[in-house]
Write a protein that binds this DNA or RNA. Structure first.
Length: 920
RNA sequence: GGGCCUGUGGCGGAAUUGGCAGACGCAGGGGACUUAAAAUCCCCCGAGGAUAAUACCUCAUGAGGGUUCGAGUCCCUCCGGGCCCACCA
């Protein structure tokens, strides 16, 4: 070996050795375990910080480098807050029920629990190797019976509640029953006192927050499951291309629509990304308008919802959704000029197409005339009623008043079917398009009512007033949000804690009998059938039981009654709807959460929630809904679960594209003189940014990066790529930058030849280094709460460069510096912290402070501009008055020379920044 | 079709929120050390012009206009890129 090679350099071996050593020390000493109120030594007077990551779905493939981006981000601020004296709750767990595990089970015959547990172990191992400060003692998975027991319990809470419109709150179902019995609450559209017992039961059931409802679903017989709309393309399943049927199905729903108002209004107080707030608001989709009844002969009036009642005079036809109840009446007694065969064919076809497919890209609007006419209440004219699939049964009343002059869809339809178009809104500016904005009402007069000349806003109000006076219509607020379909025919999910008697009445299972444990199956292959059949239907021994066996309260149902369990399971979202609460006391057996712990950690919700923007709507909306429900019922102490939300950016990767835009796998491309060449063909290819994917061969495994550089380098690199919220491409070439930085940090402390600490660390301090250190402390302290990690790291690099070239650094300064570094690169920081003589863990060391007096220089060099262009610079004392600064600027030789032939109009002095002389 | 975000060197990105554009890192070039290489350290590194050289000048933050003493940052128009929603009446 050559003598010049440093043998104690910071390299992959050194990094891996010290990282695994400290990780095992931390684990042994339970360094990251945090107590709860009431525990020995737990100080509730300290401020708390609950920092939550969106927990992962543990897939068999393990982590790739994109997963930890958010986790590193949350770990840094958690460690920082802890050093600042906060009690920090920073937990991790597993969202482990779901389809991929079940699909894998179908292929392999291995029980999903087995594969999922293996995947969890892999994920946990990979995360632990990165050195996160998670409190692993709080870890749980949604598939743990001790956890899903409480998921079922919460569902029962919803089942046992209703939404009281008078208080706008969830309330126990007994308050409804009592209110109806005493007459304090009046039943909708019926007389409670005259109802039979079974009618009463039905009425109450229809008001539960978790209720059985009829929904049209996409049923794929071949896959043996229902599919989401997104999974159906052209009537075929996205996976496999099998036929998908539309089937009405009675299944468990959540009455989330009752909370639509609050889910919308409460977005206001949240510190969330603007775009996500917007997406939630749009998803909820509140709109204001009117319900209007259109009369027709021999049938009930048709009720439509419109946001533009002011266009009533322009209504030249009515369109019904193919599922509209009136359509069935047409089949029973077809009107004279109705082609009932064509109608039947059209309706049958439309019913079997999912909503998604109905919005075909083609502008062509299909439809069939019903043979019926309705009366336009404003004009008294007879207008035709059409059936068309561009009207959806699920929104409004499944019927629309069509205004072809001012709605693009109605316009297209009228053009295609030759229907009259009447302009009733005059735009302010001429436009060629179908005008749907606000303007002035025209052609809107009859002997009934006139709104001609009114602006859209006033026209709406006047027409609504008229409609209400004449009982034709009523003002109405509508939401796009629908009730939440909560049943799945799959195996790998939480069973519902409910049973049915032979009549189909349902009975809840008592709390004492929870959890209803998911039974084992021998075969996960989906059942092929015309009608949806849940997989759990095969667990016959489990399915058929008695009320007593299942745990139904004997006062509701006699224990020996034969009952059938609910065979559907809950969807993948269920477990993630309340996991943030469970982390407060994951081992609590008496309750879903220990009350005092929940109050302490979540009195104002979680303090920071980090996760991907792909959950902007569904997960976050569902979790907010559950939280509000639990809040109303007095089970949790705040109204919103997530105070501050942050979306980390997507980690992308480079991909390579041929001239014809086809992609080339990364391992088939070579770089030659700044050009990228496809190895096989020798053709030049273009480098583009793409998602990491197996097919592009651009997936990077964090284990490989750690083996080559260590976890601290991985952590730093991922945070140094750019702003945490921005997408950035992984570029292996860039990793060495932060790696070299850590090597320089190491060298500040360690003599690479001897492996000993530098003797010079005892020398007198350099004022310049001390000032630089204070500036760095200030910058990092400021950046971390904003999650501006990339600039924090840059400032630490600057400091190390300063300290390196100064070669005067005291142990005390290094001590303060590594404490700054600790949240980012905890292992090397700990190692140096120990080497320079500290006992104990840097994780619990105090955060360094800075003296703002040391941040300002005594003298400042200020640029001097003439007419906004820098023409010179002057050095003045930092505390110089404007007068002195002005004098110095005007006397500067460069400046005075340039000003010779000019008249000074004005001198602008921005203190400590710049001087600008206006002269001409 | 609608909404949101975004556009700065060869690349990833800075810019105290209207005040010296390009911090920091990568890549590249040059030098020191070395027999040599690696490692390390030092210097250069937006484009163009000018000069023996330094000083210096001009242009430049997707394009065009505007507001301002001063614009990457604010306003208007246009053009690219990304994400989300989408026959929701």
């Amino acid at each position: 070996m050559l003598g010049t090679t440093p043998t104690h350099k910071y390299c992959a071996e050194v990094a891996n050795e010290l990282e695994t050593r400290w990780q095992s020390n931390w684990a042994q000493d339970n360094l990251n375990t945090i107590g709860n109120p009431g525990d020995d030594g737990f100080d509730t007077s300290k401020p708390k910080f609950y920092c939550l990551d969106m927990f992962p779905y543990p897939s068999g493939a393990g982590l790739h480098v994109g997963h930890p981006v958010g986790y590193i981000g949350s770990d840094i601020i958690s460690r920082f807050k802890r050093m600042q004296g906060f009690n920090v709750l920073h937990p991790m767990g597993w969202d482990a029920f779901g389809l991929p595990a079940e699909q894998y089970a179908i292929e392999t015959g291995v029980h999903p629990a087995t594969t999922t547990r293996t995947a969890i172990d892999t994920f946990r191992g990979q995360l632990q190797r990165i050195g996160f400060s998670y409190d692993w003692s709080r870890e749980f998975a949604t598939i743990d019976p001790e956890y899903y027991k409480w998921t079922q319990w919460i569902w029962l809470k919803a089942y046992g509640s209703w939404f009281d419109p008078s208080t706008k709150q969830a309330s126990p179902i007994n308050t409804l029953i009592d209110g109806l019995n005493t007459g304090e609450i009046t039943a909708d559209d019926c007389d409670w006192q005259l109802m039979t017992a079974s009618e009463k039961t039905t009425y109450v059931n229809d008001h539960r927050l978790a209720y059985l409802g009829e929904q049209v679903v996409n049923w794929c017989p071949k896959l043996g499951t229902v599919l989401a709309n997104e999974e159906v393309i052209d009537g075929l399943s996205e996976r496999g291309g099998f036929p998908v049927l539309r089937r009405p199905l009675r299944q468990w729903m959540f009455r989330i629509t009752a909370f639509a108002d609050r889910l919308l209004e409460d977005l206001d107080g949240l510190d969330w990304p603007h775009s996500t707030l917007r997406m939630q608001a749009e998803w909820i989709g509140r709109s204001e308008g009117a319900d209007i009844d259109f009369n027709l002969q021999n049938h009930e009036p048709i009720r439509v919802y419109t946001t533009r009642p002011d266009t009533l005079f322009g209504v030249t036809f009515i369109v019904l959704a193919p599922e509209h109840p009136l359509v069935d009446e047409l089949f029973a007694s077809p009107p004279e000029n109705c082609n009932s065969e064509a109608l039947a064919a059209y309706v049958t076809e439309a019913k079997n197409r999912a909503d998604v497919d109905r919005m075909a890209d083609s502008k062509e609007k299909s439809g069939v005339f019903s043979g019926l006419f309705a009366t336009n209440p404003a004009t008294g004219k007879q207008i035709p009623i059409w059936i068309a699939d561009y009207v959806l049964m699920g929104y409004g009343h499944g019927a629309i008043m069509a205004v072809p002059a001012h709605d693009q869809r109605d316009h297209d339809f009228a053009k295609a079917h030759d229907i009259e178009i009447i302009e009733v809104v005059k735009p302010d500016k001429k436009t060629d398009d179908c005008f749907s904005g606000n303007g002035t009402a025209v052609n809107s007069s009859s002997d009934q009512v006139s709104i001609d000349g009114l602006r859209t806003k006033e026209a709406k109000q006047k027409i609504i007033d008229w409609l209400e006076e004449n009982s034709i219509g009523i003002t109405k607020v509508n939401f796009r949000l629908r009730d939440w379909l909560f049943s799945r025919q799959r195996y790998w999910g939480e069973p519902f804690p409910i049973v049915f008697d032979s009549e189909g009445n349902h009975y809840p299972i008592g709390e004492a009998s929870l959890p209803v444990v998911l039974p084992d199956l021998d075969d996960y292959t989906p059942a092929e059938s015309e009608d949806p059949t849940p997989l759990l239907g095969r667990a016959t021994a489990w399915l058929h039981t008695t009320a007593g066996e299942a745990g139904v309260d004997p006062s509701i149902l006699s224990p020996d009654t034969l009952v059938t369990r609910e065979a559907n399971t809950m969807p993948g979202w269920a477990g993630s709807c309340w996991y943030e609460i469970r982390y407060c006391s994951p081992n609590c057996t008496e309750r879903f959460v220990d009350k005092a712990s929940e109050q302490y950690w979540m009195g104002n919700g979680t303090d920071l929630y980090i996760g991907g923007a792909e959950h902007a709507v569904l997960h976050l909306l569902y979790a907010r809904f559950w939280h509000k429900m639990l809040f109303d019922l007095g089970e949790v102490s705040c109204n919103e679960p997530f105070q501050k939300l942050f979306h980390q950016g997507l980690l992308t990767s480079f991909a390579f594209q041929r001239a014809n835009k086809s992609l080339v796998p990364s391992n088939k491309v070579e770089e030659q003189n700044d050009k990228f060449i496809e190895t096989e063909t020798g053709e030049e290819v273009e480098r583009v940014i793409a998602k990491m994917s197996k097919s592009l061969k651009n997936v990077v495994n964090p284990d490989d990066v750690i083996a080559e550089y260590g976890a601290d380098t991985l952590r730093l690199y991922e945070m140094y790529m750019g702003p945490l919220e921005a997408s950035a491409p992984w570029n292996t070439r860039d990793i060495v930058g932060v790696y070299r930085f850590l090597q320089r940090v190491w060298r500040l402390c360690i003599d690479e030849n001897s492996g000993d600490m530098h003797a010079s660390l005892q020398d007198a301090q350099d004022d310049l280094v001390e000032r630089a250190l204070h500036a760095t402390i200030a910058k990092v302290t400021d950046d971390i709460p904003n999650l501006s990690y990339n600039t924090a790291i840059a400032s630490m690099i600057e400091f190390v460069n300063t300290a390196t070239s100064s070669s005067k650094l005291t142990a005390n300064q290094l001590d303060r510096f590594v404490r700054l570094l600790a949240p980012f690169a905890p292992h090397i920081a700990q190692e140096i912290y120990t080497k320079i003589g500290n006992n104990g863990y840097i994780t619990v060391a105090s955060w360094p402070t800075f003296d703002s007096a040391l941040l300002v220089e005594d003298e400042l060099e200020l640029p001097v501009q003439i007419m906004g262009k820098v023409r010179g610079r002057v050095t003045v004392p930092a505390d110089a008055s404007d007068e002195i600064v002005k004098k110095a600027a005007l006397e500067d030789s460069n400046i005075s020379a340039l000003l010779e032939n000019l008249t000074i109009r004005k001198v602008i002095i921005v203190p400590n920044k710049i001087i600008n002389i206006v002269a001409n």
